[in-house]
Design a protein around this nucleic acid. Sequence first.
DNA 1: GTGTAACTTGAACGGCAGTTCAGTTTTTCG
DNA 2: CGAAAAACTGAACTGCCGTTCAAGTTACAC
Lengths: 195, 195
Amino acid sequence: MIAERGLASTRIADVAERAGTSPPAVLYWFGSKDDLLTDALTVDEDRFYGAMTERLAALERPRHRLRLLIEACAAEYDWALWMELWGRALRDRGAAAARQRLDDRWREQIAEVIRDGQQAGEFAAGDPDDAAAIIAAVLDGLAVQVTLGDRAIPADRMRDLTVRSAELLVGCELAPLDERALAAGPSEEPRPWAS
Amino acid sequence: MIAERGLASTRIADVAERAGTSPPAVLYWFGSKDDLLTDALTVDEDRFYGAMTERLAALERPRHRLRLLIEACAAEYDWALWMELWGRALRDRGAAAARQRLDDRWREQIAEVIRDGQQAGEFAAGDPDDAAAIIAAVLDGLAVQVTLGDRAIPADRMRDLTVRSAELLVGCELAPLDERALAAGPSEEPRPWAS
DNA sequence: GTGTAACTTGAACGGCAGTTCAGTTTTTCG
DNA sequence: CGAAAAACTGAACTGCCGTTCAAGTTACAC
């Protein structure tokens, strides 16, 4: 509902109808509209994060993992909900806490890929937390433009620009994902195109 | 009012009281609350842009102009209004158009500094529009975290990370601004620390 | 001055939507 | 089966707030 109608114009009655029940029933479970909204905003992010963790684990090489991260953000994720959460976090304590938790986890996810890449010798040295913060910021910033339909930044340009930024930061080319990379399970194929 | 109370909870009565008048008087001038809000959201951005243009013109060297741009965004600008505009632009046609106009102009501002730097031989070659889009995105993305009080990203880290990103992109160190740089008028001081 | 247009206002209207409540249905469990 | 707890509902309540309106005040032109 929030993704469709926006946080501001999502009514309890809408949620109830979609759930095939009545407004008081919604209140029965959530207590108040505020609680409902704050809970709802984090569900999608949590699901995306979970799926991403699985898919990352299926890729062996850090350079592929980093590329997948970026591609998924540019092509699959619904940033409208994320932006609604930002707006709410400006004034709502619960929303602010939820955002902090999700963002910490997300940046850590990126930083871990970078650390792996450095240990594997694929990525150049440098503070992985700094690089993660910058990559996350580029994704957020460009995603806003894409989501708002900016003429200058369609989704594929978002992907290309983010990939380029990441390449500069880790000093390693992030080749496009092909079936080999996506299908590759852990611990096989000893670096066929190693740098 | 919007910066203080948020877009969602700013009432016409609040605006009227602050202006020392009555709610109907506000409607008399703006027609409806929607028109009022969309107008209001762009006033601050326009003012910031105007002041920035003047201050940039006072700096001779592109590397100083780029640094000033970043420092001002990290230290002086109120990003809460910008975030409210994003949220509104998700559903409001007028707000979306206003955002597009402001963002186009802002990215062009950055791109122009980069083109100047390339022509002056300070900055490395490369598409200035791409670099501008990335720098703008880093600023937006980090500003969100700073504005929401993210523990991991205080304002000075936002500044440092953005400066580092920009340095990577333009291949030129962006030294801190001192009185010399700020006071320097156009066409003097023939590159004392040229690369 | 005086008439007209511009501007302002207090008061009231109207609708929306979150919440409450009293009562009904469904489920659970001994 | 039967009683108690849980789950749910329709209807009404309530407060809020944007908007309208008719009447008032000020500014201005001639």
